[in-house]
């Protein structure tokens, strides 16, 4: 399994798509943090969530994971992947873990960059800064969300092989379905895997609308488990004719 995971991580970092999307995630995160730190005057209570919670890695790793797994079908690399590792379930596990690791790594890199930028600007302006413990906890929560959404993306792609359909599908879910459910039926919307549960894990937003961190993590794992089981069943059954 270690070899398969290492191979999947090489796949992740040997295409331009990863670095392009990771670059966009870092730039947008820094832009948001920099603008808020420069243009607003956060209080001691709000500075952590106002300035340092702008990590956008989760949505990008979700897209990268979908591109990664559906790309196996699109470019037919699934054949060479399964010739090297014929156990299809182990292949899917390795892919899932690889994107979870990639998500966490990207999120941590962004957290470090935001912390350096945010602390520098806030200190220069004489504004309050959060403690190191609070920053570390926030970084860990963001990293957990990125890891979980990376794994979630692999599950989505394992079920929906068509790359554009899978990507458009999660955007519709994230931008239309989940916000509507959170607004109109919060008791249902709080189970949403792309906005609601991540918000619960990070600890932003109204506490009544979202689950607390631990149950939110468990519910995300349940989502991933269901998608993984369905995707694995499909992958096991499929003949690879081309």
């Amino acid at each position: 399994m270690r070899a398969l995971l290492a191979a999947e991580l090489i796949k992740v970092r040997t295409t331009r798509t990863f670095f392009a999307l990771a670059g966009v995630a870092i730039v947008t995160s820094l832009l948001l943090a920099g603008l808020v730190a420069s243009l607003t005057e956060p209080t001691e209570d709000s500075v952590l969530t106002d300035v340092f919670a702008s990590d956008t890695s989760s949505i990008f790793i979700l897209i990268l994971a979908i591109v990664g797994i559906t790309g196996e079908w699109r470019h037919r690399t699934i054949t060479s992947s399964l010739l090297a590792a014929p156990d299809r379930i182990r292949f899917l596990i390795a892919k899932t873990v690889a994107f979870a690791v990639a998500g966490a790594a990207l999120s941590i890199a962004i957290a470090v960059a935001i912390a350096v930028l945010g602390l520098t600007i806030l200190s220069a302006r004489g504004l309050p800064t959060p403690g190191a413990g609070d920053l570390l906890e926030l970084a860990a929560r963001n990293a957990a969300v990125a890891a979980l959404l990376g794994a979630f993306g692999v599950g989505v792609g394992a079920l929906v092989r068509n790359q554009p359909v899978a990507i458009v599908g999660v955007f519709v879910l994230a931008l239309i379905v989940e916000p509507l459910l959170i607004g109109l039926a919060p008791s249902v919307g709080r189970f949403g895997p792309i906005i609601a549960l991540p918000n619960g894990i990070v600890g932003v937003g109204d506490e009544e609308d979202f689950f607390a961190a631990v149950p939110a993590v468990l519910l995300m794992l349940a989502w991933i488990g269901v998608l993984f089981a369905a995707g694995a069943a499909l992958l096991r059954r499929r003949d690879l004719n081309s």
């Binding site: 796949k11 295409t15 470019h75």
Partner: peptide
Amino acid sequence: SFHPGRTGRDHLRV
């Protein structure tokens, strides 16, 4: 089957 954006050497490394 190859990923078009990956180099030949990286394909073999994987």
